[in-house]
Computed example of a mutant assay.
Amino acid sequence: MEQTNCKPSIVTYSTIIDSLCKDKLIDDAFKLFKEMVFEKGILPNVISYTSLICGLCKLGRWDEASKMLKEMEDENISPNVQTFNVLVDAFCKEGKVEEAEAVINIMIETGSAQNIVPDIVTYSSLIDGYCLRGEMIKAREIFDSITLRGLVPDVVTYSSLLNGYCKNLNVEKVVQLFREISGKGLKPDVVTCNTMLQGLFQVGCCVAAHKLFNEMHAQGRIPDRCTY
């Protein structure tokens, strides 16, 4: 780019940094981040910081992620909803649901002035966190409270609950929730259907699983390798 007198911008650097972080090449991402700041004199923004924080969290490097968040504050760069959602999702996937709830409380207490409030992505991650720990009553309580907050559950939210009920071998709840999804006019994707199939087979409901498989075809959902 530079050889053609086309100088990379913050958008260019942030895009590459984000890609490196998603590929778990976090050290390479940091090298590029330092090049951007110290060699090119380009100031980082909330997107570049959020990408690095996300990359660190996925690798379990919590202390470094906390330092990056502190560095953002020192540079007067306010975290956005995506930044907080990255932290909530990472905590939940590590089973640190209490820490995730603490982050959400910070969003609620301090974020309203900056229009930073928990959204459906935030609560879907929290529901998934409780489902992964097998705490389905708590997961359902949060799910039911979403509408009171003016939020509408999406397919991802329902999928988390379905996955939790399947792991707990609660077929009745799985079928009930699947009907609820259809009643809401939502279309479960192939991943959601695969989760249900796995749960039905685990409890020996082969007839119900085969019926669901046929419904996938009828509704235009193409089964994948995991389905078969």
Rank of each mutant, 00 (worst) to 15 (best):
E2K: 15
T4N: 14
S9F: 04
Y13K: 03
S14F: 04
I16K: 06
D18K: 06
K24C: 08
D28K: 12
A29L: 10
F30Q: 09
L32D: 08
F33Q: 03
K34L: 08
K34D: 11
M36Q: 03
F38N: 07
V46T: 13
S48E: 02
T50H: 02
S51Q: 04
L52E: 03
I53A: 05
G55S: 12
C57W: 01
K58N: 12
L59Q: 15
L59G: 08
L69P: 01
E71P: 00
M72P: 01
E75V: 00
I77F: 01
S78H: 07
P79L: 03
T83E: 01
F84D: 05
N85V: 04
V88D: 07
A90F: 01
C92G: 05
E101Y: 07
A102L: 08
A102N: 11
V103R: 05
V103C: 09
T110W: 12
T110M: 11
G111Q: 03
V117H: 07
I120F: 00
V121A: 10
Y123K: 06
S124C: 03
L126F: 06
D128C: 11
C131M: 13
R133M: 15
R133S: 15
G134A: 09
G134R: 09
E135P: 00
E135M: 11
I137Y: 03
A139C: 10
T147C: 13
G150Q: 13
L151Q: 14
V152T: 15
V152Y: 13
V152F: 14
V156E: 10
S160D: 07
L162R: 02
L162T: 01
Y165L: 04
N170D: 15
V171P: 00
K173V: 01
Q176G: 07
Q176W: 07
G183T: 04
G183Q: 06
G185H: 01
G185R: 03
K187G: 11
D189I: 10
V190N: 11
V191F: 14
T192M: 11
Q198P: 00
Q198S: 12
G199R: 08
C206G: 00
E215Q: 14
M216L: 10
R221L: 15
R221K: 13
R225H: 14
